[in-house]
Design a protein around this nucleic acid. Structure first.
Lengths: 258, 258
DNA sequence: CCGACTGATACTGTCGACACACCATGCGAT
DNA sequence: ATCGCATGGTGTGTCGACAGTATCAGTCGG
């Protein structure tokens, strides 16, 4: 049915992207207590390579090779792989070699729906409870997104978008939801470029975010939540068109997938 | 004398509860690929002891003692503890002894809000997409809850409730959301008994669930979602009354015992 | 009497090693 | 030529060991 997707041109790994990706992975992995341990370092590097597409879905991640590459024993490598497995980036079957996880279209759909629901919660809280200064900060981040878009800098836009989401999720002080959203974000990060490169998606995304910030400024919680949901659903639809357009019918977008 | 972890009479550990708890933990831990490995076994046993309250929040979980108790080396124990950490049951500070995680009231609030949002999503999908047979199955599970409640069997009710939620989350085939919800359920499991033992909470809970199943049968997605949300908010309020009501003195049951 | 220092103790993070399980190759049988 | 089976190589799961650090008991100075 919906097989592994996202295999493709291997890796755009300019320096800034690597740094950004590692930072994001680090935030998700070493969430609260940052331990400068070997395992988190390995997890960050491998995780960054995955989200950047340097490692394609399905690639082998056997621990002996990784231990050689990182000049450590296999123990920390194994722990790092387990971390990444729990973030959904790696699949570690028992007694078999770990591999970069391949997202099925169904999983993508599930993730976007979950993200939409949780982010709607966050957006409502933000509209209700964020201070004026915090909303202004979000508008600043929106500005970064706009300038990146004006330059036609897709990667820059994606990272600015990540910044926006990151700050927005922080604002509610709901660490639990933020953690979940960050994890889901990590999984879909390789797809974001894809989704936004669709015709018209980028301008639509910017428009949605402009309206979202406006809703924050107006303290309109319901509108903010609805906008977030709409944005996620549209991004999902764009992905479905791009990935599963040949195989799947479209009506599964909003219904329970089965 | 080496302090045996969790020595004492804390927690109700009748046989069936232990089995139920281990099953739930296993479902969350060894989610997709069930590996009969040592690590999952250890994780299940320790996790069950935590959710049953045999191990109180703050209790030491040092790997050497656990390895002795489970007659293994420390490696699988460490991995099991990392698993449980990612489920939020254990806190593993760097270079310090792992401990049973203590939920703050704020965390509880966050978790219930996240659960409410995601379960509302699930409930809407169920109302829209579940087959008549599946809804009937849910009604059957509701019946189990009712009989347990009629017997005044609080533990039985809690487990029947877990069964209901478990089946309900399965119905949407949204593995991602189910996984998240199961993880959140695990964290709040020690609190459920507490919440339901509040005056009137149990009858109210049953009432909510009756109406929920009715909404499913009527295919009323909005009502189902609203009911779920309401149920979660009420449970949270009951917990806040119980835990935060006596703010000054740390309460023994779940409060930050030190 | 209390608080800081010192030493002993115990636990963590990491390592290299080993047995078993998986995968691929090659051989023989049909 | 294809299929089934033995065989070797590679990687995983687990183990015991070691260095480094946190924790605790006892001691000393205030």
């Amino acid at each position: 049915m919906d097989g592994p997707v996202g295999a493709g041109k291997r890796g755009k790994a300019d320096k800034t992207s690597v740094g950004r990706a590692q930072a994001v992975v680090r935030r998700v992995i070493a969430d609260g207590h940052d331990r400068p341990s070997l395992v988190s370092q390995i997890a960050c590097e491998v995780g960054a390579e995955i989200v950047l597409g340097v490692l394609a879905p399905g690639d082998d991640l056997n621990s002996v090779e990784l231990s050689r590459r990182h000049k450590t024993s296999r123990t920390p490598v194994r722990e790092a792989l387990m971390l990444l497995e729990k973030e959904g980036l790696v699949d570690v079957p028992p007694r078999r070699r770990p591999r970069v996880n391949a997202l099925s279209l169904e999983e993508i759909r599930d993730i976007y729906r979950a993200r939409g629901a949780l982010f709607a919660l966050i957006a409502g809280d933000t509209a209700r409870g964020a201070s004026a200064g915090e909303v202004a900060e979000l508008r600043g981040l929106l500005g970064a997104m706009e300038t990146a878009a004006d330059r036609g800098d897709l990667d820059g836009y994606v990272w600015a978008n990540v910044d926006f989401y990151d700050r927005n999720t922080q604002l509610t002080n709901n660490r639990t939801v933020k953690r979940i959203l960050d994890s889901l974000l990590l999984r879909t990060l390789p797809l974001r470029r894809l989704s936004l490169s669709q015709d018209g998606r980028l301008t639509r995304s910017i428009d949605d975010h402009r309206r979202l910030v406006a809703a924050y400024e107006d303290r309109d919680a319901d509108l903010a939540a609805a906008l977030i949901r709409s944005n996620h659903m549209n991004a999902l639809k764009a992905l479905e068109r791009h990935l599963g357009g040949s195989t799947d019918d479209g009506h599964a977008a909003t219904g329970p997938s089965r």
